[in-house]
Simulated assay, not measured.
Amino acid sequence: MEKILEVNDLSYSFCTYGGVVRAVRGVSFDINEGEIVGIVGESGCGKSVTAQCLIRLNPEPPGFFESGSISYKGSDITKMTDKEMRKIRGVEIGFIFQDPMTSLNPTMKIGKQIEEIFVQRNLYSKKEMKSKALEILKMVGISDGERRYNQYPHELSGGMKQRVMIAIALVGNPGIIIADEPTTSLDVTIEAQILDLLKDLQKKLKTSIILITHDLGVIAKMCDRVLVMYGGKIVERGTVDDIFYNTRHPYTSGLLCSIASLETEKDEELEPIEGTPPDLFSPPPGCPFAARCEYAMEVCYETMPSEYTVTDEHKTMCWLQHEHAPEVVLPCKKQQKSEVLL
């Protein structure tokens, strides 16, 4: 498959009154044409900041790129001007925000918000723009498009608003759509509908999707490959089967152990990951997960591990993969992907 996006050694920080927050630290990955890649991790791990770096949505300042590159179709996004970025945002790369309640403009009708991308590109007449907007509303499963076109956001349900957000992301026929926790504020039934819609559109349009989530059930249902983030770094990467059936990092194992399975009893307590994430004002010199890891060795606290290759697709940053490390069998390798989907 052809690579559509390449991120190489990306580091992004924020200047604050308390000091510099190193939110993303040396992240590298690529996105292939027509695939769905999930980025998973707990709050504060850097997944949303990473996603927003891809189309420069983080405010600059206080945010700034410390190092690295983001190559999209041969051009480095980190070096683009505001004018050049306007040709990328919403056109080449679409973005679905996690809260449609606050992401839509409450003073503008739905149709006009969809048409904004057409106005920017100056490709169609007013009549053609309306026709295209109605076509996209139909594509995302919104019936009675003429009426919805003339409604304001407050007149729509949460699920309908999220469909409008997906419609706006699709307007420019982008090569990549970034979905930042697109089902966070929705109930379970509507969440399933939105995920099915995204998957159907991805197959139909051959669009690549970067899916940001903390929900492993969503990862199991949607993704081809997974990036597990912790402390501003990618600590494990691989196919969905690699992550669920051949976990090699204690943090990934901890995430899997914290989910109820089919065998979990009604009153049985889930197993949390003890401790708190690292302070990114002053990141630890070694593995970011060492302070919470029951298998941590002295070297884990002192030196950052290299990325070890398990298979061509499966890689992990953990000293337990070193040839001289003690052999450890991580729990929750038994967790079935089908169980997580429930």
Rank of each mutant, 00 (worst) to 15 (best):
R89M: 08
T107G: 00
K79P: 13
I114Q: 09
K83T: 13
F65T: 13
K73D: 15
S69F: 13
V91P: 07
G94D: 14
I96G: 06
Q120L: 11
R89N: 11
M80I: 10
S75M: 15
L57N: 02
I110Q: 01
A51Q: 03
R86C: 11
C53Y: 02
P106E: 06
F118V: 03
E66K: 06
V91M: 09
P59M: 13
K83Y: 13
L57E: 04
K83N: 12
M85H: 02
T81C: 12
G94N: 08
K87A: 14
Y124T: 01
S75L: 15
A51I: 04
L123I: 15
F118M: 12
M101N: 01
M85T: 00
G68M: 09
Q52P: 03
K73N: 15
S75E: 15
R121N: 09
T50K: 05
R56C: 06
F97H: 01
P61Q: 11
R89Y: 09
R56G: 05
N58W: 10
D76W: 04
Q98H: 01
L57I: 01
E116T: 06
L104P: 05
Y124R: 06
M101D: 00
L54H: 03
I55N: 05
R121M: 13
M101R: 07
F95S: 08
G68P: 04
E92T: 11
K79M: 14
M85F: 03
V49L: 02
Q113L: 06
S71A: 11
D99I: 08
K79S: 15
T107L: 06
I70C: 02
P59L: 13
S75V: 15
Q98M: 04
E92P: 04
K87Y: 12
A51P: 03
P100D: 00
Y72G: 09
K83C: 09
Q52S: 08
K79R: 12
I93C: 02
M80S: 07
N58K: 04
K112Y: 13
G46I: 08
K79H: 12
M85V: 02
M80Q: 09
S71Y: 08
D99T: 00
M108G: 00
L57G: 04
T81G: 11
K87R: 14
F65C: 12
F97R: 06
K47N: 08
P59T: 13
G111Y: 05
S71D: 14
P59N: 08
K112H: 11
I55Q: 04
L104V: 03
G74V: 13
G68L: 09
M85N: 03
L123Y: 14
K87L: 14
P61T: 12
K47Y: 12
S67V: 10
G111A: 01
L123D: 12
I110C: 01
T78F: 05
G68I: 11
F97E: 02
I55P: 02
S69K: 11
I70A: 05
T107D: 00
T50G: 06
E66L: 10
Y72K: 07
S48T: 12
P100L: 05
K47P: 04
Y124Q: 05
F97K: 05
G74T: 14
P106G: 05
D82S: 10
G46Q: 07
M108N: 07
T50V: 10
I110M: 05
N122S: 06
K83F: 13
M85L: 10
G94K: 08
Q120A: 14
K112P: 01
G74H: 07
